[in-house]
Amino acid sequence: MTDADPARLYRTVRLIRRFEERAIALVRSGHIVGGIHPYLGQEGIAAGVCAALDAGDLVTGTHRGHGHVLAKGADPARMMAELCGRETGLNRGRGGSMHAADLSIGVLGANAIVGASPAILTGAVWAHRQRGNPVVGASFFGDGAVNEGMLLEAFNLAALWRVPVLLVCENNGYATTMPVAGAVAGTITGRAEAFGIPAVVVDGQDPEAVRQVTAAAVARMRDGGGPELVEARTYRFDAHHTFEHAVRLAYRTPQEVADGRSRDPVDIQGARLSPADREAVDAEVETTLDAAVAFALAGPEPDPAGALDHLYASGLTARGGS
């Protein structure tokens, strides 16, 4: 049931690209406070993976998570409103860039603790299946996460209990500024293989390649298979976080960045469309994002009186601080 339409895949990649570029502009204009972790350059991974999932399947993302949420189908307008801290945002302005979530479409949230979400996703997928809802899940994490003990514990549980989660490692070469070579002993796929989890490396800059690898894994998982790992090799085109736009950190050479940017998932997937089709998609995406930004900026800020809203799902009210 995967979506192999190249135009739709291109649209997702392009949407994420332009969403991020507009979000960066809103950071600069002061409308988004706290900055963002741009997903620029990595769009093909979220787009390719989510194109191979069904609507009911589950995903978890990372602090660099806008792409995951959008690719799973979140409304860009409510997503942008969330980044702007508005009541009309996906999380009513309570989550922001690093915690955007839309449980109604299976997005259990971007999660800003590195390596934390695969265990959560494993439990959620297991529970859905216990309840007779045969979903699968995809959990995105970066190369930095592969050195977190919690992640490896999650690999073990998922494999031991054969929970169908796709472990998607977005290897963009750096954990913040730490290069993979400086942080990862052994290999990323080797970590999965140690738990008996099939692992494959894919070109993360090619959205269609990611989609195909994911579709094959998902088919095996729906057929009763356990977890699989995909290491998507990619490159982060921009900063770890927008603070780097003001504070330049010297950890990548200009040549390396130029080389990395030379393989652009937007262009790679765009080349699979006729110029006219591509222009049509681009125009539609701009219209969508014009509306998204307008919606975001028109939305009201939350009422400070509601600062403790949702602290407890049970309705428990917390004492105030004065």
Partner: peptide, 11 residues
């Protein structure tokens, strides 16, 4: 965290 996920899914 597995329990957290299971709770998110209704258990």
């Amino acid at each position: 965290s597995f329990a957290t996920g299971a709770a998110l899914a209704g258990l």
